[in-house]
Write a protein that binds this DNA or RNA. Sequence first.
DNA 1: TCCCGATGTTGACAGCGTACACATTCCGAG
DNA 2: CTCGGAATGTGTACGCTGTCAACATCGGGA
Lengths: 215, 215
Amino acid sequence: MKKPQDAYHHGDLRSSLVEEAVRVIEREGLDAFSLREVARRVGVSPNAAYRHFEDKDALLSAVAAHGLGMLSRRMREAIEAVSVRGAGPRAIANLRATGRAYVAFALAKPELFRVTFGRQASPPGPDQTCTNGEPDPYRVLEGCLDALVEASVISPERRAGAELFAWTTVHGYASLALGGGPLASLEPLEPVLDLVIDGVLGPSATSARKPAAKR
Amino acid sequence: MKKPQDAYHHGDLRSSLVEEAVRVIEREGLDAFSLREVARRVGVSPNAAYRHFEDKDALLSAVAAHGLGMLSRRMREAIEAVSVRGAGPRAIANLRATGRAYVAFALAKPELFRVTFGRQASPPGPDQTCTNGEPDPYRVLEGCLDALVEASVISPERRAGAELFAWTTVHGYASLALGGGPLASLEPLEPVLDLVIDGVLGPSATSARKPAAKR
DNA sequence: TCCCGATGTTGACAGCGTACACATTCCGAG
DNA sequence: CTCGGAATGTGTACGCTGTCAACATCGGGA
């Protein structure tokens, strides 16, 4: 009576493989990840994976999609934790919350974050595919900015560049915090978020923001 | 009579290995890179590399250092192309030029850029090691911001967060442009640079910037 | 001159991704 | 109920990889 699309012999391999792959990558690093290792841990033969993924790279892509879904969920949870009803400056707090959640996710699951965003080939379709039914993180950001427009905090035309700018800055902070550059031991996030919000809101509203939250 | 530190049997292997590795990575992707492949192309046995690099990862780190040096050079060249004498708003143009050069490098050599910044382990020392005598890119940015302070365009305290913010935004743009996220087919850079400069200069000087350059 | 250390080579091993052929299990048509 | 094909998992094999140990070669200082 259960209807998951693949629960035949093993009972939802594919999902098991993806989850185990996420675990290996996050706990022992991307270098420790191999098809054979994951299959071994799941308890199937190495080639079983080929019934569900064309090759190793396809499995990695599935891992990336999984990571995207997790990130998206955390951003939405962060929003909900801030506002039950959202309007006015609450919308600004939401935007800030998503940024914080984004960086927190990168720091909490650095290897997964790298796999999620460090890949060249992503589905060329308009939106990324996420593992859960989650909307992809970009849509969450769009929601935040739409709310700002609806609450008349920013003008529609100012919204135009906002998505790119906000995403870009927060993603850059996360990337650099993960260790590549000389900013590895990093300065606090909040001042950066202040500048992001200033940039999004525009020069007029500079001090309309709430004082930076603690931490 | 020549004194390069290692020009014995082969004549500066190590450098040859690094350069060939850069070539392979940039032309055929990181996946096509292997110790054996690089050694093969250079014309030495696979194990010759082990006289110069502890393991594959060490060679990759050398590639990353090489990439850092290239990036740094391009940023400095971009500055020189803008200003023979630098002061006042010229310093702002310099900052913008480094940002443009940073993104241009990432787009021109995407695989190399990924290797350069996508690594977890970097030398823990205060500054990254570059291949050429180049200062690392972070120092170049510091130079730009110092010039802004010296020219009294920004206050010293405003400079504090500026390095992180500027680097972060430009690096994020470059990373996203390389294809991970949904911003792959990307919106123009200049408006983002406008916002970066606004953020660095502070809310007072919003329209002090020059109109965005063409292209 | 000769010898030692730096450099490069050869051979070997385990682990990897993956192709091919085979075994098992599920499910619907008769 | 049976039975056959499709879906799923296994066994075996191949070439490639990173790396180790032992050996060969060279060049410069005693």
